[in-house]
Amino acid sequence: MIPAIASENRKFFSTRIWWILLLCMVAYVAFVVALIAVVIHFAEGVGAPQGTIGTPYSLPASMAYVFPATIGALAITSEYRHQTLTPTFLATPRRGIVLGAKLIGAVPIGLVLGVMASLTALAVGGGTLGLLGDDTSLGLASSWRDLVLGALAMAMWTLIGLSFGALVRSQVAAIVILLVFSQVVEPILRMVPMGVPAMSHVVKFLPGAAGEALAGGGQVYGVGSVEGVVGLPAWGGALTMAAYVAVFAVVGYVVSMRRDVT
């Protein structure tokens, strides 16, 4: 298993896509966090009590999770795309070990992405609020909790993307589905409880909602914004995300990875 993980690690860092996506993620997080910090400033300026709007620190897991998910998906779909599964399986013929090595190898990578996202949120969010003369909320333990658990949520997203890629195989299909689901489908589904409150018990298990629950977010698409409805606790969000990883990985292994490589 350890040689297979070393192999996956080298594959990841020997092409350019990882740092391109990392830079995109940092730029996007910086943009969103700065924007929301400004919104918080003006909302509080027009009379919203301080602290009720929330903080920008949990935003990466709400808005930018498509980046770690894509990086995870590429780790396996690029092998299908460039037919490098042949050398991969020649080196490690037991395919369950290959999938396991990819998942384990993606954990530290996902954590690095998450830490980078949280550091960006901290610097840009805290910086913007400070420059505007607002309370940065960095005195609150919950802000730091959001930053730490937000990094964990991003790491979980890397694993969800990877196991989803194992199932889908096609690079284009995996990325298109991830983008459409995260940017269109889930945001629409998340609005359903506004009309049908009972649906919130289903919607809170959507992957984006689970990630937000772990990161302490929820103010963006608002699972928790319906009266009397609570989202998952952080640990519930983490378990839900882990369940997605497990289901995608097992189904991906059985349905996709055991196929003939021709």
Binding site: K11, T15, R16, H82, P87
Partner: peptide, 14 residues
């Protein structure tokens, strides 16, 4: 069966 963006040496190193 090679990733076009990977160098020859890196391919073998993987």
């Amino acid at each position: 069966s090679f990733h076009p963006g990977r160098t020859a040496l890196n391919h073998l190193l993987t």
